[in-house]
Design a binder for these strands. Structure first.
Length: 561
RNA sequence: GGGGGUAUAGCUCAGUUGGAUAGAGCAACGGCCUUCUAAGCCGUGGGUCGAGGGUUCGAAUCCUUCUACCCCCGCCA
């Protein structure tokens, strides 16, 4: 529709230029906006305002001329000049109602598009090391990352989701020593407890399971426990598998799927890390200082250079990160999106710098990052500090168990990633009725209920009849709902383009609001059959869009509540 | 000290990328269920869009300077 109006304006401008009313050298940027206030029509353009200066004409005069030059269109009933020089476009009823047919015809594909054109995109998210269960911060990453995958898939991208983790570094050693200490009967209070050991009670669970000889099958890790508390390698392997399995269960409960789990250790085994170092050295972006090997990241916008090989010969974490991203590039992902917590912000510059220093033709701003700000958790009116080492934090699983998967996902995805998020458990529990996710789901369930009622009455609904009598939809509530439904594809496209899933959540809240208002004001199952069928068509279309939108957020659309 | 983020109603937050009179939900108050699900609807009150300056037809939105809070700034990941 926007394209249609843009085309009309273009024709009008061309005509005015041909008549010599406008200078030929203007370069109009035609912008069509949805109106905020329906008294301003359905769409508005500021074209006369932006052209006023170069045309040296008062904007309202210009607007009048443009309006007069507009070709006629079946889709419009009228245009008007308003305010300082806006041109408002009023759509005909039939063009407003056409969206119902589109929705019912396209079904669960309504709102999808093909802007991605089948290009590949990789989304990496969560990427938690297997040193403990997933906490609420990981949950935000999971909710946002998974929703991004769904949005990108819906807009025509070929999406690959990936989870990257370190199964061999210092933190894993720490994990193994912590589990070993538990195997030996130590507790975090013991004087012999390892420095910086993981203190959470789950470490004791891992130790017991190890000693019991349990067999662990995770998505990508398998191990069997042994009785020997002195076999640190066996403990390490077991602990990693055990905690990976825990995380798998967390992710499963959250309905989040990964196409690939990528091990940092594989980059060492394949020689990718060494190769990366050699290329960086060969390209002359490195130097030796204090017995360490440095990368001159300041050449690429960092505020200071970074150590890549430590004096002990080991590599700092960011070097495998660079090797990993080179690997992504070499796998053919011209677009990569990394969703991570904002506390990893400093790695963005370093990884990009390392990739530039490799001189492999990787674009400067590659890869994309979506950084979500911290989640603070409130319980009993107090902030719960997240500390894996101290073992005091709220796990994702606890949240899912307490407030449900749908509410948890919705809460975590409904805010812009760049905003800090407070997850108030007490609020989510005690006032779960006020949770917006129920409000949206309720709208969906209500439509299902109407259709059930129809069936109970021994009646059935004829979609063709409904689509044939859409002109019956003349109530203001119905027009508002039609306008809202029409915007869904644009909302999806915009959310995918800006990587902001929360805009879908906001849209759904508004859509549900429009529906509830209509539902209360006007009965659907009326005796007047054409009107009834038209309303059923509108209801079914609303249900479809709610279901499609919730699917993008990974939230279910229940048929009854 | 440097980098990133945030600041909008009492609280939690939107604000369609610079448009017309800044919006929801909670909380407060008052209404609506013998009628398709009241987890709903309708109404009332509530604002110096952190502060100052700038850009222009037009700013919550862009630029700039401050202020406050959060996160990073390790040869940890």
């Amino acid at each position: 529709m926007k394209e249609h109006i843009t085309g009309l304006i273009e024709q009008a401008l061309d005509a005015l230029i041909a008549q010599g009313q406008l200078p030929a050298d203007i370069t109009p940027q035609i912008q069509i906006d949805h109106t905020r206030d329906k008294s301003h029509g359905d769409f508005a353009s500021n074209i006369a305002l932006t052209l006023a200066k170069s045309a040296r004409r008062p904007p309202r005069d210009l607007a009048t001329q443009i309006c007069e030059a507009l070709p006629s269109s079946d889709l419009l009933t009228r245009t008007e000049i308003a305010g300082p020089g806006f041109i408002n476009f009023f759509l005909s009823d039939s063009s407003n109602q056409a969206v119902v047919r589109s929705i019912l015809e396209q079904g669960d594909r309504f709102g999808h598009s093909d802007v991605g054109q089948g290009r590949r995109v990789q989304v990496e998210f969560v990427s938690a090391n297997p040193t403990g269960p997933l906490h609420v911060g990981h949950g935000r990453g999971a909710a946002v990352g998974d929703s991004l995958c769904r949005l990108l898939a819906a807009t025509g991208w070929d999406v690959a989701s990936e989870f990257y983790y370190n199964d061999a570094g210092a933190q894993i050693d720490n994990l193994a020593r912590s589990v070993q200490a538990r195997c030996l009967g130590l507790t975090p209070e013991s004087p012999e407890w390892p420095d910086d050991g993981y203190r959470g009670s789950y470490i004791g669970d891992v130790a017991r399971s190890y000693l019991a000889g349990d067999a662990i099958d995770a998505q990508d890790q398998h191990a069997t426990g042994a009785a020997d508390p002195n076999d640190l390698d066996a403990i390490r392997k077991f602990a990693v598998a055990y905690l990976r399995r825990e995380q798998d269960l967390d992710l499963k409960a959250f309905a989040v799927h990964f196409d690939l789990y990528f091990l940092e250790s594989s980059l060492y085994q394949s020689g990718a890390v060494e190769e990366t170092v050699e290329r960086l050295v060969a390209n002359g972006h490195t130097y030796e200082k204090d017995g360490a090997l440095w990368l001159r990241t300041t050449d690429f916008g960092d505020d200071k250079d970074r150590v890549m090989r430590k004096t002990d010969g080991g590599y700092t974490y960011f070097l495998p990160d660079v090797a990993y991203h080179l690997n992504k590039w070499e796998r053919g992902f011209q677009r990569v999106i990394n969703e991570q917590g904002a506390d990893h912000h400093s790695t963005v510059t370093r990884v990009r710098a390392g990739l530039q220093a490799l001189q492999q033709g990787i674009p400067e701003g590659w890869p994309d990052y979506v950084l979500h700000q911290m989640v603070t958790v409130m319980r009993d009116g107090e902030e719960v500090k997240i500390s894996k080492r101290a073992g005091s934090y709220v796990t994702l699983r606890e949240l899912i168990d307490e407030v449900g998967r749908d509410a948890t996902r919705y809460f975590l995805v409904a805010r812009g990633p760049s905003s800090q998020l407070t997850f108030d458990i007490d609020l989510a529990l005690s006032q779960s009725n006020d949770n917006p996710v129920f409000y949206i789901q309720y709208a969906h369930a209500r439509v299902c209920s109407i259709l059930r009622k129809l069936t109970e009455q021994g009646d059935s609904w004829d979609a063709d009849s409904g689509l044939g009598s859409l002109q019956e939809l003349q109530e203001e509530h119905e027009k508002a709902l039609l306008r809202r439904l029409d915007r869904f594809p644009e909302v999806v496209a915009n959310a995918a383009a800006t990587l902001e899933p929360h805009t879908v959540a906001n849209y759904l809240k508004e859509l549900a609001g429009d529906f509830h208002a209509w539902y209360n004001a006007h009965k659907t199952l009326v005796d007047d059959k054409p009107l009834r069928d038209a309303r059923l068509a509108l209801s079914a279309a609303t249900r479809q869009v709610i279901a499609n939108g919730l699917a993008l957020l990974g939230v279910s659309a229940p048929e009854s509540m």
